[in-house]
């Protein structure tokens, strides 16, 4: 295809991505180094005869508006926003490092800082949910694959539901069930033998609840991909393994899993990216008191009356850096594939 033709074909989609993805990134980076203008103060001296003079400091509304309109981005502060308490919190970190006596104490202080708290949950979520969903997905795929033909279709249909459902809605549906007055919640209360038992009350249980939701939501994806992979499994390899006297477990371990390995890598990479952006469950499970994620912090900063654009932008940039680190193995791999061609 000629360059010219390619250009015209690609122009609409390229323009859409440039205007609404590339430029916003630039704009986010820019905003993260600017802070809103502080109000301009003016000092007025009131002199009353006999009483004397008093000075009064007031906000100069007009001048404030003027400077805000002249420079809508705010004032340049460099990396200050990145280093403040709401983000990397360098000062607090140093303070904690110097004064903490034990590791436990240091971690406690670290988790009181919003960004580190969110990072801890986001990383825990990503790196527990991703391997678990691969294992669960593989188990479902192996089990469903050995079912009768008619049952397979039905199982695939119902397995797709948790994945296809809107994340916020899926988490609400589960949240209402584990509510202490819901069906699972009351069963847990009966099991625990404590009428005040609630999954929402403790940080650990909240994390477990969110992680279970994450697996429930994403295991179907792994299942469908692995199930498709199982259909292409060469029969003669399995038969050869059987003739060699391999047990079922050995057949799975030495024939099936190696055959599915490229798919496992694929699912792992996609899910790492998707789990890192975990956000809706935190809202749906109303869990922000115990578990926050990076995306949730951005959403929280942007929402409400005071839209803290600078703070949200700085967290956005840090999140993008995190995604880039997670993505780097994929990029290296794709680059190698491309070089190989």
């Amino acid at each position: 295809m000629k360059h010219r033709t390619f250009f015209w074909f690609f122009l609409p989609t390229g323009l859409a991505m440039f205007l609404f993805i590339a430029l916003p990134i630039v704009s986010v980076v820019t905003q993260s180094v600017f802070a809103p203008h502080e109000a301009v103060l003016k000092t007025v001296e009131n002199c009353t005869p006999l009483v004397g003079c008093t000075t009064e400091t007031t906000i100069d509304q007009e001048a404030t508006r003027e400077i805000r309109e002249a420079q809508p981005l705010g004032r340049f502060v460099g990396l200050d926003i990145y280093l403040d308490r709401g983000h990397l919190a360098i000062a607090e970190l140093r303070e904690a490092w110097n004064s903490a006596e034990t590791w436990g104490d240091f971690w406690d202080r670290l988790f009181n800082l919003p960004l580190y708290r969110a990072l801890a949950f986001t990383l825990t979520f990503t790196f527990i949910v991703t391997p678990m969903l691969i294992v669960v997905g593989l188990m479902i795929a192996l089990a469903v694959n050995s079912l009768h033909r008619h049952l397979k279709g039905l199982m695939i249909f119902f397995s797709l539901l948790p994945m296809i459902v809107t994340p916020l809605i899926g988490s609400l549906i589960l949240f209402w069930m584990v509510d202490s007055r819901g069906i699972i919640g009351s069963a847990l209360v009966a099991l625990a033998g404590d009428p005040n038992f609630s999954l929402k009350a403790s940080t650990g249980l909240t994390w477990i609840m969110l992680i279970v939701y994450g697996i429930w939501h994403s295991a179907p994806f792994a299942f469908v991909v692995f199930y498709a992979g199982l259909q292409t499994l060469p029969k003669d390899q399995i038969e050869a393994a059987q003739i060699d006297g391999a047990t079922r477990w050995q057949q799975i371990k030495y024939v099936v899993v190696p055959h599915l390995m490229p798919l496992v890598t694929f699912v792992a990479l996609i899910q790492l990216m998707d789990n890192f952006r975990v956000f809706e469950p935190v809202v749906g499970f109303n869990a922000s008191a115990h578990a926050t994620s990076l995306s949730w912090i951005i959403f929280n900063d942007l929402g409400g009356e005071t839209r803290q654009l600078s703070a949200a932008s700085a967290t956005s940039v840090l999140t993008i850096i995190g995604v880039a680190i997670l993505l780097s193995p994929v990029l290296v791999r794709t680059w190698r594939d491309f070089k190989g061609k």
Partner: peptide, 24 residues
């Protein structure tokens, strides 16, 4: 190839990170 790689990077970014750039 580079366009596809760029698209992959864009695909990996959480959409919420862009929202701050849209609002102003």
């Amino acid at each position: 190839f580079w366009l596809l790689i760029t698209a992959l990077i864009f695909r990996a970014m959480p959409p919420i990170t862009l929202v701050a750039g849209y609002l102003l």
